[in-house]
C-alpha cells in the first residue's frame, strides 16, 4: 500500500483505512516484533507491542501523501523502534548513569555492527535451510521455534492432527540439524 492509497482511503473512511493497513501489514509487524522480543516476551507482550505500533501509525503517522512508495519501510522502522523500546523495558537494561561519574568513559557501546551483520547473514542462511525442508515442515518449524506456537495451535492453523505436527516437527528438526552439520556453519 502506498501513502497516497492510504491517504485516499482515509478520506473515504478512516476506519476502513486502518483496517486495510492492518490487514496488509499485521503479519509483517508481528514478524518484526517477534524477532526482537521472542527471547524475553510472552505472547501477550508481543501482541501488546504490535497493537501499540499500529496505534502509533494511525495517530502519529505524518505521511507525505504524494509518496508513491510502499509504506512497508516506514512501518518497519516504527515497528523496530517500538519493539526495541519494549525489549529494553522488559529486560530493564537501561541503567541511568551520571555524566560526572568517573566510570562513564569506560561504558562500552554494546552494539557491535559487525556481529549484527554476521547474525543477519546467519539468519538468512538458516531461513534458506528451513525453507529447503519443504512444506508443510518449514512452516511447522517456523511456527514452533520462531513464533513459539504449540502443536495444537499449529495443527489448527494447518488443518492437521497435533500428533502429526509433533512427529513432522521432530523429524524436520532432525533433518535441519543434519543439513546444518553438512553445511558446516555454526549458529
Amino acid at each position: 500500500m502506498t501513502a497516497s492509497d492510504y491517504s485516499a482511503l482515509c478520506k473515504q473512511s478512516p476506519d476502513k483505512a486502518y483496517k486495510t493497513l492492518f490487514d496488509e501489514y499485521c503479519n509483517y509487524v508481528y514478524a518484526v516484533v517477534t524477532s526482537k522480543l521472542r527471547s524475553c516476551a510472552a505472547r501477550e507482550d508481543i501482541e501488546e507491542c504490535v497493537s501499540d505500533i499500529f496505534a502509533e501509525i494511525y495517530t502519529k503517522c505524518e505521511i507525505d501523501d504524494e509518496y508513491e512508495g510502499d509504506m512497508r519501510g516506514y512501518i518497519g522502522v516504527v515497528a523496530k523502534r517500538r519493539a526495541i523500546n519494549t525489549f529494553r523495558i522488559l529486560t530493564k537494561q537501561a541503567p541511568t548513569v551520571s555524566l560526572d561519574d568517573e566510570s562513564v568513559p569506560e561504558i562500552a557501546d554494546e552494539s557491535e555492527p559487525a556481529q549484527d551483520s554476521d547474525r543477519a547473514a546467519l539468519g538468512a542462511k538458516l531461513l534458506e535451510k528451513v525453507m529447503s525442508l519443504g512444506e508443510p515442515d518449514s512452516t511447522i518449524v517456523i511456527q514452533k521455534y520462531f513464533y513459539n506456537r504449540n502443536s495444537l495451535e499449529i495443527a489448527k492453523l494447518l488443518g492437521m492432527n497435533p500428533a502429526s505436527v509433533r512427529v513432522r516437527c521432530r523429524r524436520a528438526m532432525s533433518r535441519l540439524k543434519n543439513i546444518i552439520d553438512r553445511n558446516e556453519f555454526s549458529l
Binding site: 509483517y28 514478524a31 546467519l122 538468512a124 542462511k125
Partner: peptide, 22 residues
C-alpha cells in the same frame, strides 16, 4: 537455534511474515 533471526535482515523478516501464524 532460531535466535539467529534476532537481527534478521529485511528480506528474511518478509519471508518469515509470509508464514501464516495469526
Amino acid at each position: 537455534l532460531f535466535d539467529a533471526f534476532e537481527n534478521a535482515d529485511e528480506k528474511t523478516i518478509e519471508k518469515l511474515s509470509e508464514v501464516p501464524v495469526l
